[in-house]
Design a protein around this nucleic acid. Sequence first.
DNA 1: TTTTTTGTTGAGTTTAATTCAACAGTTATA
DNA 2: TATAACTGTTGAATTAAACTCAACAAAAAA
Lengths: 302, 302
Amino acid sequence: MTQISAIPIFTAVIEYGSFSKAAEYLGVSKSAVSKRISALEAELGVKLLHRTTRKLSLTEAGNNYYKHAIQALRFAQEAEYAATKLQQVPKGTLRISCPVSFGHLHIAPLIPKFLQQYPHIELHLDMSDIRSDIIKEGLDLSLQAGSLQDSSLVARQITTLNSVLCASSEYLARQGTPKEPIDLIKHNCILYTYHTVVNEWGFIKDADEEVIRVTGNYQVNNSEALRKSLVQGLGIGRLPTFIAGNDIKNGDLVPVLNNYKMPNKLLYAVFPERQYMPKKVRVFIDYLIEHFDRDNPSWDQW
Amino acid sequence: MTQISAIPIFTAVIEYGSFSKAAEYLGVSKSAVSKRISALEAELGVKLLHRTTRKLSLTEAGNNYYKHAIQALRFAQEAEYAATKLQQVPKGTLRISCPVSFGHLHIAPLIPKFLQQYPHIELHLDMSDIRSDIIKEGLDLSLQAGSLQDSSLVARQITTLNSVLCASSEYLARQGTPKEPIDLIKHNCILYTYHTVVNEWGFIKDADEEVIRVTGNYQVNNSEALRKSLVQGLGIGRLPTFIAGNDIKNGDLVPVLNNYKMPNKLLYAVFPERQYMPKKVRVFIDYLIEHFDRDNPSWDQW
DNA sequence: TTTTTTGTTGAGTTTAATTCAACAGTTATA
DNA sequence: TATAACTGTTGAATTAAACTCAACAAAAAA
């Protein structure tokens, strides 16, 4: 079925009424056009054009062919346009997933302004802590926290997700402030079971990492519940700074062991293909990068 | 606009859900399919297919592309069918021209049986003595008498058109029968102005041609009028045998100078292209050849 | 009558299509 | 769990198609 590739040439000849003019329009030599038309006629076993007088005319078969061929050409052009328009213009449905906590606190508040800037985008935001297969779920983008990601997907770092050890000032007044990580074994440590490593907390000073096994009387997989329990003076806990930042600013929580760093995570925008990113995806990623500092985000400044 | 040539490949991949199966269907290697799809994506600047899991899936752009591409493919297939069906099946409108006299006497009587044999053909018969440009007039076939024809058209000889010199037996009894061509200068010679050479009649014996300039008191461009004047004993005249044949059989006309031959013409079927003749044209030419002897037609046998 | 333009075609060049073979990765099977 | 089978990719090489150039024949224009 190779005759389809000659359709643009044949229809140009008909529209321009001349091999020479069609050749000029197509950017090839007139002999190329002549040979391609002859080859098409040979393939079909049909004369499509009379060319014994200087003026071209269609045979009956040629006329029949043209009627359908011009439609084929138009649909092919429509196909090209339909496929490529998403690359050039930020429009259409943008489907994104992100972690629940981060989404509530830091993504959702950004969306109204984004949609004002890009009125032709319709955004579907799916907040879920379940790591999804973005191709299977038809997502354009997935914001994920981690350090390593699926090697077949590709990603762009958006920001850094630090953690901080903290408690209420009421708790610390009552129980004393730990000076070294080893002091934590005497404290009620509230465990965040959502993290992959639950009860072994790492502390980094200089190039050394010290790991302390901690215990406490409360474990919870919800960061908001954890946060509230800390604010109410139940114990000491490790929270992502993007959650604790405001409480720390307000004095509701106090960071402890500040001269130590805890292992951090990165927030990635993960997308299915590195090549040929649709414009709507591109503009959203750029918008996030504009709003979040890659290494020193706003919630880390208290 | 080269992406059109990849459409059959792309749509096959979607329909079969597999590069490997599409390759098998298309009769090419799977690497050919892989390269062609990648080249299409590069040309469009768009990812059309996700292929990170074993199961292929369309991207949004790929889905948009496919919807229009499958229509383009279908119209291209329709175009091919529409163009080629006339080559394989005798159907459609057959437009023919032929000389008036010959048409009335020998073509028109054949048409009913032809159309019974080919019920899907609709025949338009244009009887005219004006030599037409068959391409300009959109004709499929033109029956023409002559010896040389337009070099850009192509032709197939159908039969031979002889001429015969004749008069009524009443005229010959009254005026005597000419024994040699030179005797004609004493006779009333009725001139047929339709012929290109009107009043110089050629006579061929062995390899010699003798030309006699003749005169008479009546010239006419209509063969039927000429025929009737001869039958009524006005004089001697030259008629095509396909016209005079019946009258000679009936004894209404008598051939004279029978041992001489007169220059003849041939009847050609002229058609626009030698290549790729539509079936309906082919079957009509074959039908004529079947009915008329090429060199010794029925009207020459009296 | 001469010049210009059109379409054709052989020969040669360039580009695209294709194959082969090897590979990485996933699924199915033993 | 290990192995076999299958899928899609890709570099290198081969083949086929597309294309150009130049020369030509023929018709239209000047």
